[in-house]
């Protein structure tokens, strides 16, 4: 709830099960990014609780790591230094931190690019660095806020094809991913379950289990059916309270 008593959400109940990639879709301005930041502990809910493995989330922590819509790297650090940043709180020996960071970069396909500065990389490579940095923190849940929005379609498609296998790689203890997106095709390509939020105040209008085989392809026969379902939920007019 905002300071002016404007209620943003009502009756929101989301669950991200182990091993699941959760999509979160909704019309522009409905509060998707706000919801993601509430889950991450960046914002405090005026009522209700966020639980991670049964314990309340009270502040941001590396267990719930956020990947931003605008791709965040530090221009004064090389790719590997950017990744090592997430290992700083652990006070690991430098060599060990470097090794873990290199492994993360390798996982996202950036082996050999460790010493490049962000300015020397494409947008897609930078987002891979950001993902590697998040993975190196050993998160339990990864929160992704429209992570491909600033990439061109070909690059985004390339990362999308890799991302599921990267995220649920056995080398990382990641248990779940929650991704916000307004791109329905993208969400359908990746998610195991999709929450649709809509209305004002926003509420969950549907949870859709996506039972499409992987790797997914928009040309699959059922793909359009899912798209239509999502589209219908999103275009239903809900009267503001």
């Amino acid at each position: 709830m905002f300071e002016n008593k404007y209620k943003v959400f009502e009756n929101i109940d989301l669950t991200a099960d182990e091993g699941k990639f959760i999509g979160l879709v909704g019309p522009s301005g409905v509060g998707k990014s706000t919801l993601l930041r509430l889950i991450g502990g960046f914002l405090k809910p005026s009522s209700g609780t966020i639980l991670l493995e049964g314990k309340p989330v009270l502040k941001p922590s590396p267990k719930l790591v956020l990947i931003h819509q605008s791709i965040v790297t530090f221009p004064w650090m090389t790719a590997i230094q950017n990744v090592m940043l997430s290992l700083t709180p652990k006070h690991l020996p430098r060599d060990e931190a470097r090794e873990i960071a290199a492994r993360s970069l390798e996982t996202v396909g950036l082996q050999g690019f460790e010493d490049l500065y962000p300015k020397e990389m494409s947008g897609g490579m930078r987002q891979r660095v950001a993902i590697a940095r998040a993975l190196a923190a050993n998160p339990t849940v990864m929160l992704m806020d429209e992570p491909f929005a600033h990439l061109d379609e070909l690059t985004a498609e390339g990362i999308r094809q890799d991302i599921y296998n990267i995220l649920f790689n056995v080398n990382f203890p990641l248990k779940s991913v929650i991704m916000v997106s307004h791109n329905l095709t993208e969400v359908l390509e990746l998610a195991d379950a999709i929450y649709v939020i809509n209305g004002s105040p926003a509420t969950v209008v549907a949870r859709i289990e996506v039972n499409l085989p992987r790797p997914r392809n928009p040309k699959q026969p059922d793909f359009d059916r899912y798209l239509d379902t999502l589209y219908n939920y999103l275009t239903v007019r809900r009267r503001p309270q």
């Binding site: 991450g40 941001p60 790591v65 965040v72 923190a137």
Partner: peptide, 13 residues
Amino acid sequence: PQEYSELMKNLDL
């Protein structure tokens, strides 16, 4: 950038 602030909190620096 706002994102830097969030990242610092996120990584618990």
